[in-house]
C-alpha cells in the first residue's frame, strides 16, 4: 500500500483529508519541485501547477524533478509527467502562465504554495488568496538561507504587509539544492499539517520561520 509507512502518523482520517484536498503550487522551480513532490508522496489528491518558464541546464543543480531530457520543455509539463510517475492516481492541472495582475484560476483550492521568484508576483498571489479566503504558505530561498510564512484564511496581516518596501523585481539568485529541499520540505509540511489538522496545525502563521543552513539554525521572527 502506498501510504502504509505513514498512516500511523497522519491517521486514516488525515490521509483521507489529504486525498480530498487540492493544492496550487505557484512556481515549479527550486522550491516548487520539492513542495509538489512531497505533497504527491504524502497523498494529496489534486495539484495545480503554475509556471511560465522552461527547464534550463542551470536549473538541474536544485530543481529536483527535472533531468537532462527535460531541458527546453515547459516546467509544468515536465514536472507533471515526473509526478505522475510517482503516483498515477493524482490529478494534476497545469497552467503555463505568469502570476500577474490578471492571474485567476477557476478551481476550488484548499491551499496555495508560493514558490515564486519575485515579490511582485508573490503580492498578486497574496491578493488572489485573500479574495478567495485560501491559505497561502510563502517561502523564499537565497544562497544558504530561506524563510517560510503562512497567511491563514481570513488573516488581516498579509504577505504584502510583512514584506512591504522590499524590492519586488525578479533576480536570479544563487541557491544550493540542500537549501531548496530544506525550505521546501518545511513549506510542504506546513501545508500537510493544515490539510490534516486545520488552522491549528499551522506553525508559521504568526512568525517568519527563518532557515539558515550556514549554521543549521531554524529561528522564528515574531510578527505583530
Amino acid at each position: 500500500m502506498t501510504f502504509s509507512r505513514q498512516i500511523d502518523i497522519l491517521g486514516l482520517d488525515g490521509q483521507k483529508r489529504l486525498a480530498h484536498s487540492t493544492v496550487a503550487v505557484a512556481g515549479v522551480g527550486g522550491l516548487g519541485t520539492v513542495v509538489s513532490q512531497v505533497l504527491v508522496r504524502a497523498g494529496v489528491g489534486r495539484l495545480i501547477l503554475i509556471d511560465h518558464d522552461k527547464v534550463e541546464l542551470s536549473d538541474l543543480n536544485r530543481q529536483i524533478l527535472y533531468d537532462q531530457g527535460d531541458i527546453g520543455k515547459r516546467k509544468v509539463e515536465a514536472s507533471s509527467r515526473h509526478l505522475l510517475e510517482i503516483r498515477q492516481d493524482i490529478k494534476i492541472d497545469i497552467f503555463h502562465k505568469r502570476v500577474d495582475s490578471t492571474f485567476f484560476i477557476d478551481t476550488e483550492v484548499d491551499a496555495v504554495a508560493d514558490c515564486l521568484d519575485n515579490y511582485d508576483s508573490r503580492f498578486f498571489l497574496d491578493r488572489f488568496c485573500e479574495e478567495r479566503d485560501i491559505l497561502l504558505v510563502h517561502a523564499g530561498i537565497s544562497r544558504l538561507f530561506g524563510q517560510v510564512l503562512s497567511i491563514a484564511p481570513g488573516s488581516k496581516m498579509r504577505l504584502r504587509d510583512v514584506f512591504k518596501a522590499v524590492d519586488g523585481k525578479h533576480y536570479k539568485t544563487q541557491a544550493l539544492c540542500a537549501a531548496c529541499m530544506t525550505v521546501g520540505a518545511i513549506q510542504a509540511m506546513e501545508i500537510i499539517n493544515y490539510l490534516v489538522y486545520g488552522a491549528k496545525g499551522l506553525s508559521c502563521a504568526k512568525s517568519i520561520m527563518s532557515v539558515d543552513l550556514s549554521s543549521f539554525c531554524l529561528e522564528r521572527i515574531p510578527l505583530a
Binding site: 522551480g29 515579490y119 538561507f145 521572527i221
Partner: peptide, 27 residues
Amino acid sequence: NVFDLDGLETVVKDGQRVSIFPPSGGG
C-alpha cells in the same frame, strides 16, 4: 514592518526589539 509605522523615522524606545531580515526572494 516599520513601513507600516514611520519608516526610518519610526521612534525606537528603551526595551524595544529591532529585527533586520534580508528576505530570500528566489523560488
